[in-house]
Design a protein around this nucleic acid. Structure first.
Lengths: 115, 115
DNA sequence: AACCATAGTATACTTAAAGATACTGTAAAG
DNA sequence: CTTTACAGTATCTTTAAGTATACTATGGTT
């Protein structure tokens, strides 16, 4: 394996795309069901505001993770889908989900032991 | 593979441990060189304040990712090392680093094409 | 006696992320 | 003719993340 210098760490670049209260779950929805309309996605994210959803989607779009298709009709129709490139995040998301699941278990176990 | 419901997403649990300006690079240093004293680590993180470093290390300690050993001597000596459990984050960090590296390349390429 | 290193804590401050709420325009349904 | 759905934008407030600076105790060096 290549010599890795923490100073040249690029973890942040991946992290900056994944962080936030909403991005991971948005990505998981898009990964599992491919295309969503704006409000359809909104309904699946209880508690999110339009502003937040718009912002998150725009950021993902800017990074080419998500593709936005506007249908010029009234009422408006806009579809969001994960891009081919966006799919490359799947293994990371999957690994984090598994790790997180195990971590939650571990924590619960620890709390049980303490009581 | 198990049925995955985005609603039950545990990505956040992993993310919450990895996020921040300092955590990934702290973890990479500890993963690559094992034990560090407080100021030794501080010197490797240009710009970090004591408060921040302390906070990050406490948080990692609370999650059992980092082990803190205090040597009762004067001047004080405190050593930080990655825990066995903490090592389980290595593949994720590695995957994110690789993805991030590729993403940076991609971005640079894109900017070049545009100019 | 003044200064440096150690590993921090305490307090105040700035900035970034997120949330709450109201508003836009068009067309169809009730 | 008021309401609903659609996909947003605009503005303001709250909360969290991060920064700056000063301070602690102890012992060794100059």
């Amino acid at each position: 394996m290549e010599e890795r210098q923490p100073e040249l760490c690029r973890v942040e670049d991946a992290l900056s795309i994944l962080v936030g209260k909403w991005k991971p779950i948005i990505l998981l929805h898009l990964l599992h069901e491919d295309t969503h309309r704006f409000n359809e996605l909104k309904r699946k994210l209880p508690g999110i505001t339009q502003k937040m959803l718009t912002k998150q989607l725009r950021e993902l779009e800017d990074e080419d993770i998500v593709e936005r298709t506007v249908y010029p009709q009234v009422p408006p129709k806009v579809e969001y889908a994960i891009s081919e490139y966006g799919r490359s995040l799947e293994p990371i998301l999957e690994a984090m989900h598994e790790w997180g699941q195990n971590h939650t278990l571990r924590k619960n176990q620890k709390n049980k032991d303490e009581s």
